[in-house]
Nucleic acid binder design. Structure first.
Length: 614
RNA sequence: GGGCCCGUAGUCUAGCCUGGAUAGGACACAAGCCUGCGGAGCUUGCGGCUCGGGUUCAAAUCCCGACGGGCCCGCCA
C-alpha cells in the first residue's frame, strides 16, 4: 500500500545516510528523529537538524558541518533539492512526483487509501463496559467513541479486531436495581435503561438511610455470587433487557461490538480459580495477616507495585482479580473457556455474539496478540496491577501488549456525573443525540429548503450523530471534557458536520462536471492552495499509522478538519469546472476526487457518515 | 504522607513522547468579499505557552521547585 509522504521521509533519510557514510560520519541517533517540518513551506518540506547533533559528537562547528554535508548530499527519489538555511538542512519535495504519486495512490486504493495493512495480528479492544443498570451518559459515550474509533483504525492497519463489551451483571448496582425494581411500583415511563437509572438513584438514597434495605441488598448480592435462586433469574432478565436498550443507543452512534462478555459467565467458567492457583503456585498470592486476615493478597513489591487484596475474607473476589483472569483469557492464556452464542446484529451488519451458559465453545474469540482496554484514567493502578501480574506469570509478551487506553471523564459544568445521584438525567447519550439531531433538522432544512421531509430526517440524523461523535473524539483522551451543549451541537468549522459538508461539496463538484478524466501535464498545479492539498493528501496514511501505533484515535479527527479547511481554501481560489484550460480542469477534478476519497476514508475511521448531499 | 494526569489568548484546542526557525487551528469580537463549481464558505485584524529556577548553542517541549485543577494509593464500587 502506497504511503506517499512516508516515502518522501524515507528518501530523505536514505539521502542523509548515504551522505554521512560518504563522509565517514556516524549518525548520532536515528535519522528520522532529526526531521521536522519547517514553520513556513517556503523554507522547505522537511528539515533536518542533524548538524546540531553532529556538532556535539564530532566537535566541529555546525556551519562547517552543514557545508560539508550539503556538498555530499545527492537528491534522489522524491527529493527535488536541498538547501542550507542557517543551520538547517531543508529538503524540498519534488512537487510533480509527489502529486502524481499521491493522486495515483488515492485513486487506485480508493476506499483502502490510508489502510496500510502493516499488521496481521489480532487485537482485542474492550470498551463501553457500562453497568447494565442504567442508560449511557455522555461520558460513557466518550469511552464508546474512543474505543470504536480505535477499532476502526486498527482494522485499517490490518489487524483482525475483536471488540468486547464487558457486562458486570453481578455488582452491587445490579442488586440495588433489582430491589428498586421490586419495591418501586410506580415507575417512570421511559426507555428501559432510563427507567432503571431513575429507580436506582431513588433506591440508592433509601438504602443509605435504611439499614433493613441495606441488609436485603447484601442478601441479593450473596445470591448473585452463589449463582442460584430467583434473584439470579431476575438479574439475568433485567440486565438482558438493559443491555438491549443500551445497544439501541450505541447502534445509533454507529458503535459495534463483536462480543458481549458477562461477568456471571466468567464467574462460572472457573478461570478465576485457575488464575489464583497459578499465582499461588509462584508464591505471588499469599494469605493476609493482621487486619487482612482471611484474605488473599497479590504481592508484586519487587515490580514496584503495592500489595493488592484479590480475595476478600468472605471468599469473594475483588474486581482486579477478575480483571487479571479476563485479561489472561483475552490472550488465550487460560485453560478454562467460555461458551458463546449469537446475540444480535448491528445495523452495520456486525454479528454480535454473547457469552452464554448454553452456548457453544468456539475457538474464534480471544487469543489476541494485543489487548487494549478503554478504561477511565482513574483506573491506572488496577490496570497496572493486571499487566504486571501477567509479567509475574512469565507472560512478558502479553504484559507488554496490554494497553490501557486511559481517558479522563466528561464533566458537567456543575461537577462529575453521578449515577447514584442521577445527575446524568438530561445528559444521556440518548438525550444528547436527540437534541443534536433536532438541532440538525432545523439547520438542514434552512440549507435545503426544497428537499423532502424524508431527506431532512436522514440528513439530520447523520449530521447530529456526526457532531456528537466528533466532539467526543477530537479532544485528546487525557484531557477532561466539560460538557457544553454549544460544543456537542457545534456545526461550525471545527466539527464533524463541517467535514461532512466539505465532502458533500466535493461530491457536488464531481456530479456537476460533465466529464472526468482527460490528460493533463504533470506540472499543472501552480497555486499554493493546490500544492498544500496534495501534500495533505499524501500525509493521510502516516496519520493513520501514527494513530494506531500511539493509540491516539483523535489524530484522524484533527487531520480531517485540516483537510476540510484546506479544501475550502482551494475551493475559494481555484475554479474546477470553469478552470482556464481543459487540462487544468481535468487535473483539478482529479484533485477534488482525491479529496473526496480521503475525507470519506477519514470520516469512516471516525464512524461518521460521509454524505454526498446534505 | 507517596504517586499519576492536566494547566497554551475572553473561551476551547494542536504542538510536549523525539528540544530547533515566526507556537498551528477553532469559537467570540471587529472589518471586508456579496452568492461563485453548495456562504455550514473565504480574506484581514485582535489576542496566548500558570509562575520561579536549572540544563542547553537553542525550552511550550527535558529536569527541579512552587501554584491551580483532577485522580489513585479500599476486603468501596
Amino acid at each position: 500500500m502506497v504511503n506517499p509522504w512516508g516515502e518522501f521521509k524515507r528518501d530523505v533519510c536514505r539521502a542523509l545516510e548515504a551522505a554521512l557514510s560518504k563522509l565517514g560520519w556516524q549518525p548520532p541517533r536515528p535519522l528520522e528523529e532529526t526531521l521536522a517540518e519547517p514553520p513556513d513551506p517556503k523554507l522547505g518540506d522537511l528539515a533536518s537538524t542533524i548538524c546540531f547533533d553532529l556538532a556535539k559528537s564530532l566537535h566541529k562547528s555546525p556551519t562547517w558541518l552543514m557545508a560539508e554535508l550539503s556538498k555530499a548530499l545527492e537528491p534522489a527519489g522524491l527529493i527535488a533539492r536541498v538547501e542550507v538555511v542557517g543551520n538547517y538542512l531543508n529538503f524540498f519535495v519534488d512537487v510533480q512526483k509527489l502529486t502524481e504519486l499521491t493522486l495515483r495512490a488515492v485513486e487506485e486504493a480508493d476506499e483502502e487509501y490510508g489502510h496500510l495493512k502493516v499488521s496481521r495480528g489480532k487485537a482485542v479492544i474492550e470498551h463501553t463496559s457500562v453497568n447494565p443498570t442504567k442508560p449511557l451518559h455522555i461520558g460513557h459515550g466518550r469511552n464508546a467513541v474512543i474505543g470504536d474509533t480505535m477499532a476502526r483504525i486498527l482494522r485499517a492497519l490490518g489487524y483482525e479486531v475483536e471488540v468486547q463489551n464487558y457486562i458486570d451483571d453481578m455488582g452491587r448496582q445490579v442488586a440495588e436495581t433489582l430491589l428498586a425494581n421490586q419495591l418501586i411500583k410506580r415507575k417512570p415511563r421511559a426507555k428501559f435503561d432510563h427507567v432503571l437509572g431513575l429507580i436506582y438513584a431513588d433506591m440508592h438514597r433509601r438504602v443509605r438511610q435504611e439499614a433493613e434495605l441495606e441488609a436485603r441488598v447484601r442478601e441479593i448480592l450473596a445470591e448473585l455470587e452463589r449463582g442460584k435462586g430467583r434473584w439470579v433469574t431476575m438479574a439475568k432478565r433485567l440486565t438482558q433487557r438493559c443491555v438491549k436498550a443500551n445497544l439501541e443507543t450505541t447502534d445509533r452512534l454507529g458503535v459495534s461490538y463483536d462480543l458481549l462478555v458477562w461477568e456471571s459467565d466468567i464467574a462460572r467458567s472457573g478461570m478465576l480459580d485457575e488464575t489464583l492457583e497459578r499465582l499461588k503456585a509462584i508464591n505471588r498470592v499469599v494469605e493476609g495477616t493482621g487486619d487482612r486476615a482471611g484474605t488473599l493478597i497479590l504481592r508484586l513489591a519487587d515490580f514496584g507495585i503495592e500489595d493488592k487484596v484479590l480475595v476478600r475474607s468472605d471468599g469473594t473476589a475483588v474486581y482486579t482479580a477478575r480483571d487479571i483472569a479476563y485479561q489472561l483469557w483475552k490472550f488465550g492464556q487460560t485453560k478454562s473457556g467460555l461458551r458463546f452464542k449469537l446475540h444480535s446484529k448491528r445495523p452495520d451488519g456486525t454479528k454480535t455474539y454473547t457469552t452464554a451458559q448454553r452456548g457453544k465453545s468456539v475457538a474464534k474469540f480471544g487469543r489476541a496478540g494485543k489487548v487494549i482496554n478503554v478504561v477511565g484514567a482513574e483506573q491506572r493502578f488496577p490496570q497496572q496491577v493486571v499487566s504486571t501480574a501477567l509479567r509475574a506469570l512469565g507472560l512478558e509478551r502479553e504484559s507488554q501488549n496490554s494497553y490501557h487506553l486511559a481517558y479522563e471523564h466528561v464533566w458537567l459544568p456543575s461537577g462529575r456525573f453521578s449515577g447514584r445521584k442521577g445527575t446524568w438525567v438530561g445528559f444521556s447519550v440518548d438525550d444528547v443525540v436527540e437534541e443534536a439531531v433536532a438541532r440538525a433538522h432545523t439547520v438542514v432544512k434552512e440549507h435545503a429548503p426544497k428537499a423532502t421531509e424524508r431527506f431532512w430526517r436522514k440528513a439530520a440524523e447523520f449530521v447530529g450523530v456526526g457532531a456528537v461523535r466528533y466532539s467526543l473524539l477530537s479532544t485528546s483522551p487525557e484531557k477532561k471534557i466539560v460538557f457544553k451543549w454549544e460544543e456537542a451541537l457545534n456545526f461550525d468549522r471545527n466539527s464533524g458536520p463541517a467535514i461532512q459538508y466539505s465532502h458533500a461539496r466535493a461530491c457536488s463538484i464531481l456530479r456537476k462536471a460533465k466529464r472526468r478524466g482527460g490528460k493533463h501535464p504533470i506540472d499543472v498545479f501552480k497555486l499554493p492552495e493546490e500544492r498544500r492539498l496534495v501534500k495533505l493528501l499524501s500525509k493521510f496514511p502516516e496519520v493513520v499509522r501514527e494513530a494506531g501505533e500511539k493509540l491516539q484515535p483523535y489524530l484522524p479527527a484533527l487531520y480531517a478538519a485540516e483537510l476540510a479547511l484546506g479544501f475550502n481554501k482551494f475551493y475559494e481560489v481555484a475554479p474546477v469546472i470553469e478552470a482556464e484550460t481543459p487540462q487544468l480542469c481535468a487535473a483539478r477534478l482529479r484533485l477534488v476526487n482525491c479529496v473526496r476519497i480521503t475525507l470519506r476514508n477519514a470520516l469512516d475511521l471516525m464512524g461518521i457518515a460521509a454524505p454526498e448531499r446534505m
